[in-house]
Amino acid sequence: MGILESLKALLFGKHDVGGEKQDVKPEPARKTDAVKEAGKPADVIVEKKASIIKEPKEEKPVADKITVGHVHMSGCTGCLVSFADNYEGLLTILDKYADLVYCLTLADVRHIPEMDVALVEGSVCIQDHIAVEEIIETRKNAKIVVALGACACYGNITRFARGGQQNQPQHESYLPIGDLIDVDVYIPGCAPTPQQIRNVCVMAYLLLKGNDEQKALAGAYLTPLMNLAKAGTEACGCDVMYNVINQGLCMGCGSCAAACPVRAITMVYGKPQVERDLCIKCGACYAQCPRSFFSFDVVNQYEGIIDAIDAALQP
């Protein structure tokens, strides 16, 4: 099965959970004026304005956009802040490509609606029944589930939780979302970087709405991140030992050390030396390593891709 076929199957066929969710027509997106009017992402004051007056000239047909939601599990909101740190880029994304249909901080919607893409931040506390219900609901209602950030992908710092904290001391078991539901795409990192989130957003848009060539490129770009999602829910600095050095693949570039958010990796005689007690299990080192995954089809086109993403983010 080619990439495109498998993507189509993934996007439109596989998660046949709800029974009634067979219709793949793009949903007429509910417009969230709140977000568009919020101005700077830092001012997250939700201000609902009835949009009676349409700005006729600059509006693109809404059906061209994809619908996106941000689902907040046990995370620190750092992932969302990182998304917002795209500044004008975020506004362009929300303007041209995506309607934010669900987001606790930015969109005034109570229940998890149907959407094209759910960005899930945080791991799931299985003692918190609301969290469990919401993650199940998310899988049912979203065509693509993206684990946004290390806690959703791998548990990250929440792996070290052992309960006992006030005022819910019984909340002690936190699982990466992939232990509870099927996940389509991983964006590792603590926090995931604004540029990585931006690139995935643009690629997800191209995959769903682009022409054939764009779809193929976006598919090739997203495939490694989909493979990470298939590979499991455990990450550690040890991955660069197990899967790179032990496999005879490390060439000492140092990308892993640069990517580590807690400086757990130093390069000693040209190889990563992991201070294992410092590692928070975010998965950035391994995902950043050019010898974890490397697609010539994608990276050889780096100039074109960077230009395309830049162009896509022009207001």
């Binding site: 990276v299 780096y302 960077i306």
Partner: peptide
């Protein structure tokens, strides 16, 4: 400056900046 593999790492890092915030540009 880098060897071919390091330049590959750099370009992968620009396209997939998993842990390289604000570096790609």
């Amino acid at each position: 400056v880098g060897t071919p593999c390091q330049i590959q790492a750099l370009r992968k890092g620009q396209l997939y900046p998993v842990g390289l915030r604000d570096v790609p540009d």
